[in-house]
Write a protein that binds this DNA or RNA. Structure first.
Lengths: 347, 347
DNA sequence: CAAAATCACTATATCGTTACAGTTTTCCCA
DNA sequence: TGGGAAAACTGTAACGATATAGTGATTTTG
């Protein structure tokens, strides 16, 4: 009944196997473009039967909305921007993070755009870029600082984002974080259980939030389990492995050298092992080491190193879910998650 | 002189600190939108002085073309799509690859979109997606097969792309590859120099092109240096480290066990080391191992392992340059590069 | 039974950009 | 001096989608 091809025949779309648009569907169903658009959006003012018909045809010809069209008209980009620091590459965190995010985005319309920045000082640039050009609907950042200007900026603009790592600005925003406090605390416990007393921490660079957490867990462990903290500030997790090794060799040769080490990363631990063995020390005998570990490397090549795992891929998944939820308007306080050290051996 | 604000005053753009568009510049200069557009494109029919003026204003207000507008009108997305397999994450190749690509794209207008696919069988899906939706101007793929359907498809459609790894289809396309033939050949040389005679290769999965190269180099080395190849087909570089270790333990306990191993990846080598030590063998004494190595892990924890480096970040840079050149119309035969094993110790 | 409300659908304008087809103005040359 | 061409600029339409403001039937309601 309703299928009158009424006033002024609609133009047939040009090429036969061009990419279908709303116009194509409109032509095929005899409806107006607007109707098709609204039908696909399940708008309340379109008849049930019509919606059915439109959906059928759309599925049949494999219609997919033109992203540029939508973006131009509505401003919605369907893009999540992952902003990363080149330092992360050194730690090898990028791969599993990207994979984790992708796993979640694959079930949505979102694409993942990766934007790295060079030096520490430029961390704000990519965020500004996204804000100014509207390049994405949401942003994921990592390596947060206690007072993070990127977080301040995006909060001020009310722009959806999620952070890998927490902040300390009294602002409530979505985050996912690994419990580095717990990690360091448990690490100290293990060392003391081995009879170690003079402990050092190979820690994050001091301007990052998780420095505070890891440091706090370490200090708390020192107090609770009755050990002594030996300072080790010449290098940190961002230093090159060569520098870490050199600094550790010096430390271990100094008077009052430590007999237990906590390493905040697996690759850092490798440098530490190289250093202590160069100094003729034996793991498990003269000294003990607890480390984060991502693969099975340490576990197999130096089983004496005690390890705990941090699941970065999970972090990627959580962060992706959080930004999307934020874009959809969920409250930030519901989008904060923590993950915990995984005892080596478990999945 | 030319600055007449002539017939029918042009509408002033709305909000004061909205994002500037061509319209904004047109209003500020008193020119038409078309003129501004063409001026910024350095078109020949615009006066030199006018171009200057437009460029100045554009720079002043920080004009950046709206990507959605350009994309809708011209079809140019200014996007490069990196398509990766989840297997790559296991090898940890993603990070440096992404960084390398980004380094190059940062100097251009291109954005990097990362699209992973799940299982081996779905490798074509993301390529089809890009082709069908026009989601990118160019594509980078890796893990090529000798007859690679993705390459065939993109060649047929004349779509710009570059591959990490070569193919063997008689089609000329841009690629970057590591010389795995040379790597394996040199590895065999080193082992024979240590007096090793019965050699195995921990090789790539057989359906990938670089299996052929690595295998060929290995066999050639065996012939040239007079050694024997011991088969080892139960596992390959895509196998889990646990499986590799188990298979290697069995191999080493069998009669006629090898006394030299070539490993196509650093993490594979870790599993091999774990296996041979579990069997009570000593590196450099009962057996020798040559491996690719990306970090300093093996070098420091098992200096007895001989290593060569593959620069994945460089690969990323080369691939990015190649796709872009291809998009700009350069001939594919000019866009094929190889990189060579880097002796450990050099940068 | 006329006025109001509801239902199902549609035309138009617009987002920012560029291809194309003009329009003026100036200048040159026969 | 007039015709033609070159130089410099501009209006319109279109890319594909959607927000807004309709239109014309049909149904409800007082």
């Amino acid at each position: 009944m309703k299928n009158r091809l009424s006033e002024g025949a609609r133009a047939a779309p040009a090429g036969t196997n061009e990419r279908p648009t709303l116009k194509t569907i409109a032509f095929m169903t005899g409806l107006g473009i607007t109707t098709v658009s609204r039908a696909l959006k399940d708008a309340p003012d379109i008849g049930t039967e019509t919606k059915e018909r439109v959906r059928l045809v759309a599925a049949q010809i494999g219609y997919q909305p033109n992203r540029a069209g939508v973006r131009l008209r509505t401003g919605k980009t369907n893009v999540i921007s992952l902003i990363l620091s080149l330092e992360e590459e050194i730690m090898g965190l990028t791969s599993p993070m990207v994979i984790g995010i992708s796993e979640v985005l694959a079930t949505t319309q979102y694409h993942l755009v990766v934007t790295p920045y060079r030096a520490q000082g430029n961390a704000l640039d990519p965020v500004r870029y996204v804000l100014e050009t509207g390049a994405a609907d949401g942003v994921i950042i990592s390596r947060t600082e206690p007072k993070d200007p990127r977080v301040a900026l995006m909060m001020e603009r009310n722009f959806p984002f999620a952070t890998h790592g927490r902040t300390e600005m009294g602002l409530t925003h979505p985050y996912h974080d690994f419990d580095n406090e717990r990690f360091a605390y448990e690490a100290v416990r293990k060392l003391v259980e081995q009879g170690r007393k003079r402990l050092v921490l190979l820690q994050p660079p001091p301007y990052l939030t998780f420095y505070l957490h890891m440091r706090a867990g370490f200090e708390r462990g020192i107090r609770d389990f009755g050990a002594t903290a030996v300072p080790f500030n010449e290098v940190n997790l961002d230093s090159s492995l060569v520098d870490i090794r050199r600094a550790a060799e010096n430390l271990l040769r100094a008077p009052n050298a430590p007999d237990g080490i906590v390493s905040g990363s697996g690759s850092g631990a490798v440098a530490l092992v190289a250093a202590l063995e160069a100094d003729g020390l034996k793991l498990g005998e003269h000294i003990d080491l607890v480390s984060k570990e991502s693969q099975m490397l340490l576990q197999w090549l130096r089983p004496e190193v005690m390890t705990m795992r941090e699941d970065i891929r999970l972090a990627g998944r959580e962060l992706a879910k959080a930004v999307i939820a934020r874009i959809e308007g969920r409250a930030p306080e519901e989008l904060q998650t923590l993950s915990y050290p995984i005892p080596t051996g478990e999945t």
